[in-house]
C-alpha cells in the first residue's frame, strides 16, 4: 500500500444497530477505519465484538445503519477482506489437509472453477512465511490449538487481503509463538489494515495505533490515549461491565476521536 492511499477510509460504519434474537447487541455504532490503521477492539464477553466483525464481513445483517468496506456495501468485498475466526467452525474429521485448507483462502481469486498454479504458489509462500510448511500434508483435525491458529492465519493471508480481521487470535497460542505472532502482525501492518479483537490489553496497547472499547456501545481512541490510567479504566470496563457512559468523558480528551 503506497503512502498516498493511507488517507483512504477502508471501513466506515455509521449509526449501526444490530439485534440478534430480539436482543440489542450493538447500539448506535460509529466507526471509521483508515487505510493502514491497526485497530484493537476490547470489551467484555457478550459486548458484541465478534458480532461487529461479522457485520463488517457481511455475515450478520444490520437492523439499521450503514456499513461500507472500501467504499462499497459489504457483500461485494470478499476478495479484499480476510478473517481469522475465534473458533474454527469445521468438522475435525473432514478429509482435508492443511495445504488444501489454506488453498481455500484463494476461493475468491481463482480464475475458473479450479485452483491455478499461481494459487498453489501463494499457498507455498504463505506456509513458508508462517513457518508451517512442514504441516502441509497434515489432516486439519490432527493439529494442535496453536498450529490450527497459524493455519487459520495462513488461510486468511493467502489471498493477500487489504483488510485482515482477527477474533482473539492468540487464545490458543503458546507464549513463545505469541511474541512471534505479534512480530508477524507488525510486519503485516505495513501492508494492510488490521482489526484485532483481543482480551490482551498489553498487546493492544503495544501494537495498535487505534483502539475501541465495545460493550454494546463503542468508544474509540487514538494511540496517545492509551495511558495506564485508561487501560486500567478500560480493563475495569471489561471486567466489571461498567457502562461506557461512566468513562466516556475520560477518553473524550481532545486528542481522541470519540464517535457517539
Amino acid at each position: 500500500m503506497s503512502i498516498s492511499s493511507r488517507n483512504n477510509i477502508v471501513i466506515q460504519i455509521k449509526n449501526l444497530w444490530v439485534s440478534l434474537k430480539d436482543r440489542i447487541i450493538l447500539e448506535d455504532i460509529n466507526l471509521t477505519v483508515w487505510d493502514g490503521d491497526f485497530l484493537g477492539i476490547i470489551g467484555p464477553n457478550g459486548g458484541g465484538k465478534t458480532t461487529l466483525l461479522r457485520v463488517i464481513l457481511g455475515l450478520v445483517k444490520p437492523m439499521q445503519g450503514s456499513v461500507q468496506v472500501l467504499g462499497e456495501q459489504v457483500h461485494k468485498t470478499g476478495k479484499h477482506i480476510a478473517y481469522v475466526p475465534q473458533h474454527a467452525h469445521f468438522d475435525q474429521d473432514f478429509p482435508i489437509n492443511v495445504w488444501d485448507m489454506v488453498l481455500m483462502g484463494r476461493l475468491g481469486q481463482r480464475r475458473g472453477r479450479f485452483y491455478s498454479r499461481e494459487d498453489q504458489a501463494a499457498v507455498k509462500s504463505i506456509l513458508l512465511e508462517l513457518e508451517i510448511d512442514a504441516l502441509g500434508k497434515r489432516q486439519v483435525g490432527k493439529l494442535s490449538g496453536g498450529e490450527r491458529q497459524r493455519v487459520l492465519l495462513a488461510r486468511a493471508l493467502v489471498s493477500r487481503p487489504r483488510i485482515l480481521l482477527m477474533d482473539e487470535p492468540t487464545n490458543n497460542i503458546d507464549s513463545q509463538f505469541e511474541a512471534r505472532f505479534y512480530d508477524i502482525l507488525k510486519k503485516l501492518s505495513q501492508e494492510m489494515t488490521l482489526v484485532l479483537v483481543s482480551h490482551d490489553l498489553t498487546a493492544i496497547s503495544r501494537h495498535v495505533n487505534k483502539w475501541a472499547c465495545l460493550n454494546r456501545k463503542i468508544v474509540v481512541g487514538g494511540k496517545n490515549d492509551i495511558t495506564p490510567e485508561i487501560i486500567a479504566e478500560v480493563y475495569q470496563c471489561s471486567v466489571n461491565r461498567i457502562m461506557h457512559d461512566q468513562f466516556r468523558h475520560i477518553v473524550a480528551a481532545p486528542k481522541g476521536e470519540v464517535f457517539r
Partner: peptide
C-alpha cells in the same frame, strides 16, 4: 465436476466460503 471445489469449501467451512463470496 464444475462445482467440486465450491462444494468442498461449503462442506468444510460454510461461513468462510460465504466470506469468500461463494
Amino acid at each position: 465436476f464444475t462445482l467440486y471445489e465450491d462444494f468442498r469449501a461449503v462442506s468444510f467451512d460454510e461461513e468462510f466460503a460465504r466470506v469468500q463470496g461463494l
